[in-house]
Design a protein around this nucleic acid. Structure first.
Lengths: 161, 161
DNA sequence: CACTTGTTTCACAAAGTTGTGAAGTTAAAA
DNA sequence: TTTTAACTTCACAACTTTGTGAAACAAGTG
Protein backbone atom coordinates (compact mmCIF):
# COMPACT_ATOMS: atom_id res chain seq x y z
CA UNK A 1 0.00 0.00 0.00
CA UNK A 2 1.69 3.15 -1.21
CA UNK A 3 -1.31 5.21 -2.33
CA UNK A 4 -2.15 8.36 -0.47
CA UNK A 5 -5.09 8.17 1.92
CA UNK A 6 -5.69 11.90 1.47
CA UNK A 7 -8.74 13.12 -0.45
CA UNK A 8 -6.25 13.90 -3.21
CA UNK A 9 -2.83 15.48 -3.07
CA UNK A 10 -3.17 17.45 -6.30
CA UNK A 11 -4.31 20.86 -7.28
CA UNK A 12 -6.92 22.49 -5.09
CA UNK A 13 -7.90 25.07 -7.70
CA UNK A 14 -8.69 22.29 -10.14
CA UNK A 15 -10.98 20.60 -7.69
CA UNK A 16 -12.81 23.83 -7.09
CA UNK A 17 -13.31 24.22 -10.82
CA UNK A 18 -14.72 20.72 -11.05
CA UNK A 19 -17.40 21.50 -8.48
CA UNK A 20 -18.05 24.95 -9.88
CA UNK A 21 -18.58 23.73 -13.40
CA UNK A 22 -20.62 20.76 -12.26
CA UNK A 23 -22.95 23.14 -10.49
CA UNK A 24 -23.48 25.32 -13.55
CA UNK A 25 -23.94 22.22 -15.65
CA UNK A 26 -26.53 20.98 -13.17
CA UNK A 27 -28.41 24.25 -13.50
CA UNK A 28 -28.35 23.67 -17.22
CA UNK A 29 -30.28 20.47 -16.69
CA UNK A 30 -27.86 17.59 -16.08
CA UNK A 31 -28.14 15.44 -12.97
CA UNK A 32 -25.66 16.07 -10.25
CA UNK A 33 -23.46 13.00 -10.41
CA UNK A 34 -23.12 12.86 -14.20
CA UNK A 35 -22.29 16.55 -14.12
CA UNK A 36 -19.55 16.00 -11.55
CA UNK A 37 -18.09 13.04 -13.38
CA UNK A 38 -18.08 14.87 -16.69
CA UNK A 39 -16.51 17.85 -15.04
CA UNK A 40 -13.81 15.76 -13.42
CA UNK A 41 -12.74 14.30 -16.73
CA UNK A 42 -12.95 17.69 -18.38
CA UNK A 43 -10.46 19.08 -15.89
CA UNK A 44 -7.72 16.53 -16.48
CA UNK A 45 -4.61 17.20 -18.47
CA UNK A 46 -4.55 13.86 -20.22
CA UNK A 47 -8.22 14.09 -21.11
CA UNK A 48 -9.25 10.78 -19.63
CA UNK A 49 -9.71 9.10 -16.29
CA UNK A 50 -10.38 5.61 -15.02
CA UNK A 51 -13.41 4.81 -12.92
CA UNK A 52 -11.22 4.44 -9.85
CA UNK A 53 -9.63 7.81 -10.44
CA UNK A 54 -13.01 9.43 -10.82
CA UNK A 55 -14.27 7.82 -7.64
CA UNK A 56 -11.20 8.91 -5.75
CA UNK A 57 -11.18 12.46 -7.00
CA UNK A 58 -14.87 13.01 -6.32
CA UNK A 59 -14.91 10.97 -3.12
CA UNK A 60 -17.85 8.84 -4.19
CA UNK A 61 -18.49 5.13 -4.46
CA UNK A 62 -17.62 3.08 -7.54
CA UNK A 63 -21.34 2.41 -7.88
CA UNK A 64 -22.07 6.08 -8.28
CA UNK A 65 -19.41 6.39 -10.94
CA UNK A 66 -20.75 3.38 -12.76
CA UNK A 67 -24.23 4.85 -12.90
CA UNK A 68 -23.02 8.26 -13.98
CA UNK A 69 -20.80 7.06 -16.82
CA UNK A 70 -23.52 4.75 -18.07
CA UNK A 71 -25.77 7.76 -18.34
CA UNK A 72 -23.12 9.97 -19.93
CA UNK A 73 -22.33 7.35 -22.53
CA UNK A 74 -26.03 6.87 -23.20
CA UNK A 75 -26.56 10.54 -23.98
CA UNK A 76 -23.43 10.65 -26.09
CA UNK A 77 -21.25 12.86 -23.96
CA UNK A 78 -18.58 10.31 -23.08
CA UNK A 79 -16.93 7.22 -24.37
CA UNK A 80 -15.36 4.26 -22.66
CA UNK A 81 -12.25 2.62 -24.01
CA UNK A 82 -9.97 -0.15 -22.91
CA UNK A 83 -6.54 -0.73 -24.33
CA UNK A 84 -5.92 -4.28 -25.57
CA UNK A 85 -4.72 -6.35 -22.64
CA UNK A 86 -5.76 -3.78 -20.07
CA UNK A 87 -7.86 -4.25 -17.05
CA UNK A 88 -9.25 -0.77 -16.64
CA UNK A 89 -11.64 1.34 -18.65
CA UNK A 90 -10.63 4.84 -19.61
CA UNK A 91 -13.37 7.38 -19.84
CA UNK A 92 -13.01 10.38 -22.06
CA UNK A 93 -15.19 13.18 -23.29
CA UNK A 94 -16.22 12.89 -26.91
CA UNK A 95 -14.68 15.46 -29.19
CA UNK A 96 -17.99 16.79 -30.37
CA UNK A 97 -19.81 16.28 -27.10
CA UNK A 98 -20.91 19.88 -26.89
CA UNK A 99 -21.97 20.20 -30.47
CA UNK A 100 -24.03 17.10 -30.12
CA UNK A 101 -25.59 18.05 -26.83
CA UNK A 102 -26.68 21.44 -28.14
CA UNK A 103 -27.58 20.24 -31.59
CA UNK A 104 -29.59 17.34 -30.23
CA UNK A 105 -31.96 19.79 -28.60
CA UNK A 106 -33.73 20.05 -31.93
CA UNK A 107 -35.42 16.76 -31.02
CA UNK A 108 -37.06 18.44 -28.03
CA UNK A 109 -38.46 21.21 -30.17
CA UNK A 110 -39.66 18.74 -32.71
CA UNK A 111 -41.52 16.86 -30.00
CA UNK A 112 -43.09 20.06 -28.76
CA UNK A 113 -44.20 20.88 -32.28
CA UNK A 114 -45.71 17.43 -32.72
CA UNK A 115 -47.64 17.68 -29.49
CA UNK A 116 -48.95 21.10 -30.49
CA UNK A 117 -50.02 19.68 -33.80
CA UNK A 118 -52.08 17.02 -32.06
CA UNK A 119 -53.55 19.80 -29.94
CA UNK A 120 -54.64 21.74 -32.99
CA UNK A 121 -56.66 18.80 -34.16
CA UNK A 122 -58.16 18.34 -30.72
CA UNK A 123 -59.17 21.96 -30.28
CA UNK A 124 -60.21 22.65 -33.83
CA UNK A 125 -57.81 24.28 -36.30
CA UNK A 126 -60.23 27.10 -37.04
CA UNK A 127 -60.93 28.07 -33.45
CA UNK A 128 -59.05 30.87 -31.67
CA UNK A 129 -57.04 28.32 -29.69
CA UNK A 130 -56.21 26.39 -32.83
CA UNK A 131 -54.93 29.45 -34.56
CA UNK A 132 -52.82 30.44 -31.57
CA UNK A 133 -51.28 27.00 -31.53
CA UNK A 134 -50.44 27.21 -35.21
CA UNK A 135 -47.95 29.99 -34.65
CA UNK A 136 -46.32 28.21 -31.73
CA UNK A 137 -46.05 25.10 -33.84
CA UNK A 138 -44.30 26.98 -36.64
CA UNK A 139 -41.92 28.58 -34.18
CA UNK A 140 -40.85 25.26 -32.71
CA UNK A 141 -40.24 23.79 -36.13
CA UNK A 142 -38.19 26.83 -37.05
CA UNK A 143 -35.98 26.41 -34.00
CA UNK A 144 -35.66 22.69 -34.57
CA UNK A 145 -34.49 23.36 -38.10
CA UNK A 146 -32.12 26.21 -37.30
CA UNK A 147 -30.31 24.76 -34.31
CA UNK A 148 -28.36 22.14 -36.25
CA UNK A 149 -27.54 24.74 -38.90
CA UNK A 150 -26.08 26.94 -36.19
CA UNK A 151 -23.77 24.15 -35.10
CA UNK A 152 -22.81 23.46 -38.66
CA UNK A 153 -21.89 27.08 -39.18
CA UNK A 154 -19.67 26.94 -36.12
CA UNK A 155 -17.93 23.87 -37.44
CA UNK A 156 -17.32 25.50 -40.79
CA UNK A 157 -15.96 28.70 -39.24
CA UNK A 158 -13.71 26.61 -37.03
CA UNK A 159 -12.18 24.71 -39.92
CA UNK A 160 -11.04 27.92 -41.57
CA UNK A 161 -9.09 29.04 -38.52
CA UNK B 1 -75.15 25.16 -5.95
CA UNK B 2 -75.56 24.68 -9.66
CA UNK B 3 -72.01 23.84 -10.66
CA UNK B 4 -71.22 20.37 -11.90
CA UNK B 5 -69.48 18.02 -9.47
CA UNK B 6 -67.95 16.11 -12.38
CA UNK B 7 -64.24 16.32 -13.12
CA UNK B 8 -65.30 18.57 -16.01
CA UNK B 9 -68.12 18.24 -18.48
CA UNK B 10 -66.21 19.62 -21.45
CA UNK B 11 -64.06 18.24 -24.20
CA UNK B 12 -62.18 15.06 -23.46
CA UNK B 13 -59.77 15.47 -26.37
CA UNK B 14 -58.71 18.83 -25.00
CA UNK B 15 -57.90 17.36 -21.62
CA UNK B 16 -55.81 14.70 -23.23
CA UNK B 17 -53.88 17.35 -25.10
CA UNK B 18 -53.25 19.23 -21.88
CA UNK B 19 -51.63 16.21 -20.28
CA UNK B 20 -49.81 15.24 -23.44
CA UNK B 21 -48.26 18.63 -23.92
CA UNK B 22 -47.47 19.01 -20.23
CA UNK B 23 -45.53 15.77 -20.41
CA UNK B 24 -43.45 16.85 -23.38
CA UNK B 25 -42.89 20.20 -21.74
CA UNK B 26 -41.74 18.42 -18.59
CA UNK B 27 -39.24 16.44 -20.63
CA UNK B 28 -38.01 19.75 -21.94
CA UNK B 29 -37.14 20.77 -18.40
CA UNK B 30 -40.15 22.40 -16.75
CA UNK B 31 -41.52 21.06 -13.46
CA UNK B 32 -44.65 19.03 -13.65
CA UNK B 33 -47.21 21.34 -12.10
CA UNK B 34 -46.12 24.53 -13.89
CA UNK B 35 -46.13 22.55 -17.12
CA UNK B 36 -49.68 21.35 -16.52
CA UNK B 37 -50.95 24.79 -15.57
CA UNK B 38 -49.33 26.38 -18.58
CA UNK B 39 -50.73 23.69 -20.80
CA UNK B 40 -54.23 24.12 -19.38
CA UNK B 41 -54.24 27.82 -20.19
CA UNK B 42 -52.72 27.17 -23.59
CA UNK B 43 -55.61 24.89 -24.48
CA UNK B 44 -58.41 27.36 -23.76
CA UNK B 45 -60.33 29.19 -26.43
CA UNK B 46 -60.41 32.49 -24.61
CA UNK B 47 -56.73 32.35 -23.81
CA UNK B 48 -57.04 32.82 -20.08
CA UNK B 49 -58.23 31.00 -17.00
CA UNK B 50 -58.86 31.84 -13.36
CA UNK B 51 -57.07 29.99 -10.60
CA UNK B 52 -60.28 28.19 -9.69
CA UNK B 53 -60.79 27.07 -13.29
CA UNK B 54 -57.25 25.79 -13.47
CA UNK B 55 -57.65 23.90 -10.20
CA UNK B 56 -60.89 22.36 -11.35
CA UNK B 57 -59.70 21.37 -14.77
CA UNK B 58 -56.49 19.78 -13.48
CA UNK B 59 -58.09 18.38 -10.33
CA UNK B 60 -55.50 19.87 -8.03
CA UNK B 61 -55.61 22.06 -4.95
CA UNK B 62 -55.67 25.86 -5.09
CA UNK B 63 -52.34 25.76 -3.29
CA UNK B 64 -50.74 23.85 -6.12
CA UNK B 65 -52.09 26.33 -8.63
CA UNK B 66 -50.83 29.23 -6.58
CA UNK B 67 -47.32 27.82 -6.49
CA UNK B 68 -47.28 26.99 -10.16
CA UNK B 69 -48.46 30.37 -11.40
CA UNK B 70 -46.05 32.14 -9.10
CA UNK B 71 -43.27 30.21 -10.78
CA UNK B 72 -44.60 30.74 -14.29
CA UNK B 73 -44.89 34.46 -13.72
CA UNK B 74 -41.41 34.53 -12.25
CA UNK B 75 -39.85 32.96 -15.32
CA UNK B 76 -41.86 35.22 -17.61
CA UNK B 77 -44.15 32.68 -19.20
CA UNK B 78 -47.41 33.98 -17.75
CA UNK B 79 -49.08 37.10 -16.56
CA UNK B 80 -51.76 37.69 -14.01
CA UNK B 81 -54.40 40.36 -14.54
CA UNK B 82 -57.46 41.49 -12.67
CA UNK B 83 -60.15 43.65 -14.24
CA UNK B 84 -61.02 46.77 -12.25
CA UNK B 85 -63.72 45.86 -9.78
CA UNK B 86 -63.15 42.14 -10.11
CA UNK B 87 -62.46 39.59 -7.50
CA UNK B 88 -60.61 36.99 -9.49
CA UNK B 89 -57.24 36.91 -11.21
CA UNK B 90 -57.07 35.89 -14.83
CA UNK B 91 -53.96 34.09 -15.91
CA UNK B 92 -52.81 34.23 -19.49
CA UNK B 93 -49.80 33.20 -21.48
CA UNK B 94 -47.57 36.04 -22.55
CA UNK B 95 -47.53 36.71 -26.27
CA UNK B 96 -43.81 36.22 -26.59
CA UNK B 97 -43.53 33.53 -23.93
CA UNK B 98 -41.86 31.10 -26.27
CA UNK B 99 -39.47 33.54 -27.81
CA UNK B 100 -38.40 34.58 -24.36
CA UNK B 101 -38.06 31.10 -23.00
CA UNK B 102 -35.87 30.00 -25.89
CA UNK B 103 -33.97 33.24 -26.17
CA UNK B 104 -33.30 33.35 -22.46
CA UNK B 105 -31.26 30.19 -22.74
CA UNK B 106 -28.35 32.34 -23.80
CA UNK B 107 -27.84 33.11 -20.12
CA UNK B 108 -27.17 29.45 -19.43
CA UNK B 109 -24.50 29.27 -22.12
CA UNK B 110 -22.96 32.46 -20.89
CA UNK B 111 -22.69 30.98 -17.40
CA UNK B 112 -21.10 27.85 -18.77
CA UNK B 113 -18.60 29.97 -20.66
CA UNK B 114 -17.77 31.94 -17.54
CA UNK B 115 -17.19 28.84 -15.50
CA UNK B 116 -14.96 27.42 -18.21
CA UNK B 117 -13.02 30.65 -18.21
CA UNK B 118 -12.36 30.32 -14.49
CA UNK B 119 -11.27 26.76 -15.18
CA UNK B 120 -8.73 27.86 -17.73
CA UNK B 121 -7.07 30.04 -15.15
CA UNK B 122 -7.11 27.24 -12.63
CA UNK B 123 -5.63 24.62 -14.93
CA UNK B 124 -3.21 26.87 -16.76
CA UNK B 125 -4.09 28.39 -20.12
CA UNK B 126 -1.05 26.87 -21.80
CA UNK B 127 -1.60 23.32 -20.63
CA UNK B 128 -3.40 20.70 -22.74
CA UNK B 129 -6.48 20.99 -20.54
CA UNK B 130 -6.43 24.75 -20.77
CA UNK B 131 -6.32 24.66 -24.53
CA UNK B 132 -9.14 22.17 -24.71
CA UNK B 133 -11.26 24.42 -22.52
CA UNK B 134 -10.58 27.41 -24.71
CA UNK B 135 -12.46 25.92 -27.62
CA UNK B 136 -15.40 24.93 -25.46
CA UNK B 137 -15.47 28.43 -24.07
CA UNK B 138 -15.60 29.97 -27.52
CA UNK B 139 -18.34 27.60 -28.57
CA UNK B 140 -20.56 28.53 -25.63
CA UNK B 141 -20.12 32.21 -26.29
CA UNK B 142 -20.98 31.66 -29.92
CA UNK B 143 -24.23 29.92 -29.01
CA UNK B 144 -25.05 32.57 -26.42
CA UNK B 145 -24.62 35.23 -29.06
CA UNK B 146 -26.47 33.48 -31.87
CA UNK B 147 -29.55 32.28 -30.01
CA UNK B 148 -31.11 35.72 -29.57
CA UNK B 149 -30.30 36.53 -33.20
CA UNK B 150 -32.17 33.43 -34.25
CA UNK B 151 -35.26 34.62 -32.40
CA UNK B 152 -34.93 38.05 -33.88
CA UNK B 153 -34.80 36.61 -37.36
CA UNK B 154 -37.99 34.72 -36.68
CA UNK B 155 -39.69 37.87 -35.48
CA UNK B 156 -38.62 39.76 -38.58
CA UNK B 157 -39.77 36.99 -40.93
CA UNK B 158 -43.07 36.88 -39.14
CA UNK B 159 -43.74 40.58 -39.53
CA UNK B 160 -43.47 40.32 -43.29
CA UNK B 161 -46.16 37.66 -43.52
C1' DC C 1 -67.72 47.35 9.54
C1' DA C 2 -68.74 42.54 9.14
C1' DC C 3 -69.22 39.12 5.46
C1' DT C 4 -67.95 36.55 1.61
C1' DT C 5 -65.05 34.94 -1.89
C1' DG C 6 -60.60 34.25 -3.88
C1' DT C 7 -55.66 33.74 -3.04
C1' DT C 8 -51.47 32.76 -0.50
C1' DT C 9 -48.67 30.63 3.08
C1' DC C 10 -47.13 26.91 5.84
C1' DA C 11 -46.31 22.43 8.10
C1' DC C 12 -46.44 17.99 6.77
C1' DA C 13 -47.17 13.51 4.33
C1' DA C 14 -46.39 11.02 0.08
C1' DA C 15 -43.61 10.17 -3.71
C1' DG C 16 -39.50 10.31 -6.16
C1' DT C 17 -34.40 10.64 -6.57
C1' DT C 18 -29.77 9.80 -5.43
C1' DG C 19 -25.77 7.51 -3.66
C1' DT C 20 -24.16 3.59 -0.71
C1' DG C 21 -22.55 -1.04 0.73
C1' DA C 22 -22.52 -5.55 -0.45
C1' DA C 23 -23.03 -9.17 -3.46
C1' DG C 24 -22.50 -10.60 -8.24
C1' DT C 25 -20.22 -10.73 -12.84
C1' DT C 26 -16.44 -10.47 -16.11
C1' DA C 27 -12.03 -11.15 -17.83
C1' DA C 28 -6.97 -10.91 -17.34
C1' DA C 29 -3.21 -13.25 -14.84
C1' DA C 30 -1.03 -16.94 -12.68
C1' DT D 1 -8.59 -23.65 -13.57
C1' DT D 2 -8.16 -20.69 -9.76
C1' DT D 3 -7.25 -16.16 -8.27
C1' DT D 4 -7.76 -11.41 -8.39
C1' DA D 5 -8.79 -6.76 -9.85
C1' DA D 6 -12.21 -3.87 -12.14
C1' DC D 7 -16.65 -2.96 -12.90
C1' DT D 8 -21.84 -3.52 -12.44
C1' DT D 9 -26.18 -4.49 -10.24
C1' DC D 10 -29.39 -4.26 -6.58
C1' DA D 11 -31.88 -3.43 -2.21
C1' DC D 12 -32.10 0.11 0.77
C1' DA D 13 -31.49 4.42 3.50
C1' DA D 14 -30.96 9.42 3.32
C1' DC D 15 -32.37 13.32 1.14
C1' DT D 16 -35.24 16.20 -1.87
C1' DT D 17 -39.27 17.51 -4.19
C1' DT D 18 -44.06 17.96 -4.73
C1' DG D 19 -48.82 18.65 -3.63
C1' DT D 20 -52.22 18.81 0.21
C1' DG D 21 -55.28 20.61 3.94
C1' DA D 22 -55.80 24.08 7.06
C1' DA D 23 -55.23 28.49 8.48
C1' DA D 24 -54.13 33.22 7.48
C1' DC D 25 -54.72 37.03 4.48
C1' DA D 26 -56.69 40.44 1.07
C1' DA D 27 -60.14 42.80 -1.26
C1' DG D 28 -64.84 43.63 -2.99
C1' DT D 29 -69.79 43.91 -1.21
C1' DG D 30 -73.81 44.84 1.38
Amino acid sequence: MTTTPEPQPSDEAARRFVEDFALVFTNAGLQRMPARVFSAVLATQKGSLTAAEIAESLQVSPAAVSGAVRYLIHVGLMSKAREPGERVDHYRILDDAWYESVGRKDAIYRQLAESIERGMTALGPETPAGKRLQETHDFFLYIAKELPLLIERWRADRLEA
